[in-house]
Design a protein around this nucleic acid. Structure first.
Length: 425
RNA sequence: GUGCCUGUAGCUCAAUGGCAGAGUCCCUGACUGUGGAUCAGGUUGUUGUGGGUUCGACCCCCAUCAGGCACCCCA
């Protein structure tokens, strides 16, 4: 084999089969987003480094971003996330937009990470946000959208769950334990790591951070108490709204969910695949009421979440929930019997297209078995044949590939016959 | 970034220092106007790459690249 230049590490090639899946995911995301009245939008794929330096974590900017200097000497970044672009664009038109703004987006992002199972350097991400609405009911809508998506792709509550927590509640609980404000970030990080470490190492870590024995015991009892959400008015309203929306079975309170440290201020949530032994994160988000103010806009409450395409595709594939998508967009093949009849076939195909059918015409006269085999492998459902007999009598043979039956009929009745076959499914 | 495992035909994999193979796919024919099934025949390789050891390397050693798994990090 000749040497083929390899693709860039961490990128994926989208052959038609994978492209069909990507588009299917996109269309599902679109359907769910639009059912809640969200508008599609997008930002540039290239942004200045400054945009992320302002508010994203150092890790994301310094180690995980693709940064290059363009010919004009500016530092440019391939966008690693969408929220800073959202904040920038909202802030620029803060006085003319109609609030609350409900926007969604599906596009490519880049992060220079170590590629592995469920992780690539170039990926697609669904982002959906509501800005200008405060309150637990808005948070509930966002969680409901996530649940509606899980349901739309066929994941049951037994396979996927959305775990919800509230930063405000945790803050109050930390206060009760006497954890000082300057320690809260460390403790949040500790909570975030709990699921990933063994119990012993986690407790050692807690002591290193400076928790006393009684604080550690208090923290553990908070993290094991699944009813403490009742102490939070916001969470109480959120769960009530989710019940009314009909998605409560997908949602649970989980005090272990903290979600990094950056811009989240209230409700935080994360959806996991729980069908296997390992909890895999499908999507995550929460309320970030300070971001607009932090990037120089007027204060504006906001809530949203993001979902990468890689993990969800992997999960759906493992659970065999991916739909069988047609290989060829055209279900009809017109065969070419002989060189003399080539124009006859091309003309028939053109006719069928005028009737609104998606049609492929074989490009040359080849042996019929070969052409039928092509139709079969391309997943086509109807094959048309014009041989000398049909050409002389103005007829066409229509074969239904799913059951092997065929009939020879007047050319004028062909499209009707095809439609009947395609409808029969 | 760290450790372990893997890399052989388009694909899935054999070959334990001695002639590189099988299944599948593909092509041809059985079937000169009909796909899937069956049967027969045929093509397919710088064994990831570069060095080294050896009379001789897919096999052993070193390096490198790529992929997988577990950490680390992150969401």
């Amino acid at each position: 084999m000749k040497r083929i230049i390899p693709p860039v590490k961490g990128t994926r090639d989208f052959y038609p089969e994978q492209m069909a899946l990507r588009n299917w995911l996109y269309s599902t995301v679109r359907a769910v987003s639009e059912s809640f009245g969200y508008q599609e939008w997008d930002a540039p794929f290239l942004e200045t480094l400054d945009l992320y330096a302002a508010k994203s974590g150092e890790e994301l900017v310094k180690k995980q971003s693709y940064v290059f200097t363009d010919r004009g000497g500016d530092e440019i970044t391939l966008r690693p996330e969408l929220t800073p672009s959202l904040a920038r664009m909202i802030a620029a038109r803060q006085n003319e937009l109609v609030f609350p703004v409900r926007w969604w987006s599906f596009g490519p992002f880049w992060r220079y990470e170590r590629p592995g199972r469920g992780r690539s350097r170039e990926f697609f991400q669904w982002n959906i946000d509501m800005l200008g609405a405060n309150g637990a009911e808005a948070d509930a809508e966002m969680v409901a959208i996530a649940a509606a998506f899980l349901k739309a792709v066929g994941l049951t509550p037994a396979q996927a769950q959305i775990y919800v927590n509230n930063r405000g509640l945790m803050d109050t609980e930390f206060d009760k334990l006497g954890i000082k404000p300057e320690k809260k970030a460390d403790v949040s990080g500790l909570v975030d790591r709990r699921e990933k470490m063994n119990a012993e190492a986690w407790e050692t870590n807690a002591v290193e951070i400076g928790l006393s024995a009684s604080q550690l015991e208090g923290l553990k009892s908070i993290l094991e108490d699944r009813e403490r959400w009742r102490n939070s008015e916001e969470l109480t309203r959120l769960f009530k709204t989710l019940e009314t929306l009909g998605f409560l079975e997908y949602v649970k309170y989980d005090p272990n969910i903290m979600r990094g440290l950056l811009y989240y201020t209230g409700t935080v949530f994360e959806a996991f695949d729980i069908s296997g032994g390992v909890r895999r994160s499908i999507l995550g988000g929460g309320r970030y009421d300070n971001l607009l103010r932090d990037v120089g806009g007027e204060p504006l409450p906001a809530v949203g979440f993001a979902m990468g395409d890689v993990v969800i595709s992997l999960i759906l594939q493992e659970l065999m929930l991916l739909p069988k998508l047609p290989i060829s967009p055209a279900p009809v093949l017109v065969t070419v019997f002989s060189p003399e009849l080539l124009m006859e076939s091309i003309s028939l195909a053109a006719d069928m297209r005028l009737n609104g059918l998606k049609v492929v015409c074989y490009p040359e006269a080849a042996k019929l078995p070969k052409q039928f085999k092509y139709a079969d492998r391309m997943g086509m459902r109807v094959v048309l044949v014009i041989g000398p007999d049909e050409a002389n009598t103005g007829k066409v043979t229509v074969k239904n590939l799913s059951n092997g039956t065929q009939e020879t009929i007047d050319r004028s009745k062909v499209s009707e016959s095809i439609n009947k076959i395609l409808e029969s499914q």
